[in-house]
Nucleic acid binder design. Structure first.
Lengths: 186, 186
DNA sequence: CGTTGAATTCCCCGCTTGTTGAGAAAGGGA
DNA sequence: TCCCTTTCTCAACAAGCGGGGAATTCAACG
């Protein structure tokens, strides 16, 4: 694993966003902590926005995730859903990207970017329609609210109780509630 | 209802915070939209922090709210809880204060302020211990996650589906799930 | 009228930010 | 050796920010 200066800057950017928020993440601040000249940041990423964009870029195999959740007993679809999402968020390979992405969306303009995440727009929508439930939009937002609230406390606030819980434990606790939003009549 | 310039500034501050976030809320920006000199803001509220604090100040009768939720059938405690919280958030008299407060907490440092809200620390904690459930801290955070996620979409993002739903409707949909977190064994 | 005190404005300071252009090391073929 | 590309630094700009002092309007009261 070679670590170029470019990657170092990206990683530091993610750390700043996740720890102190998008607005507090400045080119100069990132450069300072990366022991690098601010102009170098501009050399690799021409503008601040491009830096933010690249640092929070995350590509997921949404179709595979949808397949995993939809396949199998509908009773347990909620648990599989929570498990799949937590697997992404806890993934060491993804590192800080998901948290930085969430923190960035939270303060981007009026947080409206939150609703246009891949997670909600694509993943949840697809899962629900595949399961053939009514009011897919309402269900997707209820589940998204539950999951984003969880992410807020588990990753950004790092509240001990939720942050130290294991993924399977959380899946067990949240899975059935999410399952209700997924399939039960509203 | 007399509207002093001071109140106008406070109201405009809340609007800025709720719409564009805490960090984007500047003394000069507020003054500009209020058609007022920035120095006047400083005259009333000596520092930016004091302005923010006063604009997001919200006093609730927590004890009354706890009483309302705890009293009555435990089966319906979840619904009463959701109804009580929504009544506060939707209250026209409170106006923009709750949303501004939430948006401010979201970007305050690392959002850690979120966990120390009256809502969670006092209200939820008190309700759960009064109902005599185990693991009060975990339950409080699960419910807080659900409710804050809802607030995010309903008020800040203003996603049509959740924003246009009626309070009783949401209470019906969310009440029982919250009730599970409140009393069911985890 | 004059005075007094609050409401409001003007001008200034020091600081940080994003962005920029010009140029300095470094390193690897030819 | 020369040269060219990549990597990186220096110095500077214009803008926006929070804060602060001093002065001005303005309405009410004597």
């Amino acid at each position: 694993m070679e670590m170029t200066t470019r990657d170092l800057i990206l990683e530091e950017t993610r750390r700043q966003i996740a720890e102190h928020g998008l607005d507090a993440t400045t080119i100069r601040g990132v450069a300072r902590r990366a022991a690098v000249d601010p102009a170098l940041v501009r050399h690799y990423f021409h503008t601040r926005q491009e830096l933010i964009d690249e640092a929070t870029e995350l590509d997921l195999d949404i179709r595979r995730m949808v397949r995993v959740v939809v396949h199998g007993s509908p009773k347990l679809a909620g648990r599989r859903l929570v498990g799949t999402v937590l697997a992404v968020w806890d993934s060491p390979e993804a590192g800080l990207v998901p948290m930085a992405r969430l923190a960035a969306a939270l303060t981007d303009q009026n947080a409206a970017a939150l609703a246009r995440t891949d997670l909600i727009e694509q993943f949840l929508g697809e899962v629900i329609t595949r399961l053939g439930a009514d009011q897919p939009r309402l269900r997707a937002q209820l589940i998204a609210a539950q999951l984003l609230g969880l992410a807020l406390f588990r990753y950004l606030v790092s509240e001990p109780v939720l942050a130290s819980a294991t993924a399977p434990g959380l899946t067990a606790v949240l899975g059935d509630a999410v399952g209700c939003y997924l399939t039960e009549p509203l």
